[in-house]
């Protein structure tokens, strides 16, 4: 990691009346990281991003973007940050190109057409550059939101559920584009409800619950720490397999947890020896969904 973190969040609290949306969140994201912020609805993800982006003011604590305080040095902090909002919002008065020019201007850039064309081409929007936003499909509007967040070439990009409600093809396209941004040096902070998305993209993950961070580690470490592998056997006599410590599921399936692949053969041998009548076998990899459910259940 570089000396100056891309994002530094220290003991940030934010309340709305009696509701404590953020209860002392601390977090550091290094430059060039692809970081996931996960949590159930109401966990505080959007509030944290709002405080980071200057859309809400934290009651206490410190937030820095590339070393710039988001309150005291908001100009430089905001120049370093591009935010793709969760909602499909747009200004109905303007075309795609006008919007991107205006957004460039807001960030203090007066001649930005070359870069705008490059972004439009990357997001497959060149053909719609002069179309009014109202005439675009939901997927295209989503891509324009990504383009708006990139007009000022921010080193840190926040994507607040960028693939919510988009079809599989567009989701794959966006993943590829975001990966490319990360490879080009951009730090990515992603919030998503699609856990397979976070697992596939993020190097590190933080999980929020009720305004607190309840898990923070590399994706691999979280998978190893919280989710066991799973051996599933379909058997003729599930009650026999259950007696060996398995969990009976529908359709004659019985599930056994294990930690390493070396455990599989002895486990299968026990099931065979008990004469349960094995008909089919499946091996389940640990996945982030199970980690998420386990973490949320524990805390």
């Amino acid at each position: 990691m570089s000396a100056v973190p891309a994002i530094r969040i220290e003991a940030v609290c934010k309340s709305f009346g009696s509701l404590k949306a953020l209860a002392g969140v601390s977090l550091e994201i290094g430059q060039g990281e692809f970081f996931g912020l996960l949590g159930p609805n109401g966990a505080g993800k959007t509030t944290l991003i709002s405080a980071l982006a200057g859309l809400a003011r934290a009651d206490s604590g410190l937030i820095e973007v590339m070393g710039h305080d988001v309150v005291a040095d908001y100009r430089n902090a905001r120049l370093q940050l591009g935010v793709v909002p969760q909602e499909l919002v747009f200004d109905p008065f303007f075309s795609v190109r006008e919007l991107l020019r205006i957004q460039s201007g807001y960030f203090g850039i007066s001649a930005n057409d070359d870069w705008i064309d490059e972004i439009l081409a990357s997001l497959d929007l060149l053909g719609k550059a002069d179309a009014n936003m109202r005439s675009l499909s939901g997927g295209m509007k989503r891509r324009v939101l990504v383009a708006q967040a990139l007009v000022h070439r921010p080193p840190v990009i926040v994507l607040d559920e960028p693939t919510a409600g988009v079809d599989v093809e567009l989701r794959q396209g966006l993943w590829q584009f975001i990966r490319k941004l990360n490879q080009d040096g951009h730090t990515i902070l992603l919030t998503t409800h699609y856990l397979e998305e976070a697992e596939a993209l993020c190097g590190r993950i933080a999980m929020l619950k009720a305004g607190r961070i309840v898990a923070l580690d590399t994706t691999q470490a979280l998978l190893e720490q919280f989710a066991a592998h799973d051996l599933r056997v379909r058997v003729a006599r599930p009650e026999v397999a259950r007696a060996l410590g398995g969990t009976v599921q529908a359709g004659g399936w019985v599930s056994f947890g294990f930690d390493t692949y070396a455990d599989v053969e002895p486990l299968l041998a026990r099931v065979r020896a008990a004469d349960s009548g094995i008909e089919e076998i499946q091996l389940g990899e640990p996945d982030l969904e199970r980690v998420f459910l386990e973490v949320m259940r524990r805390d």
């Binding site: 120049l79 201007g105 807001y106 960030f107 203090g108 850039i109 007066s110 070439r153 490879q183």
Partner: peptide, 19 residues
Amino acid sequence: MTKRVVRPVTSSWVGFRTL
């Protein structure tokens, strides 16, 4: 080694003018 993102030149006056 993390790549550096090349940032464009910006002016606060342009932001006001654009708004």
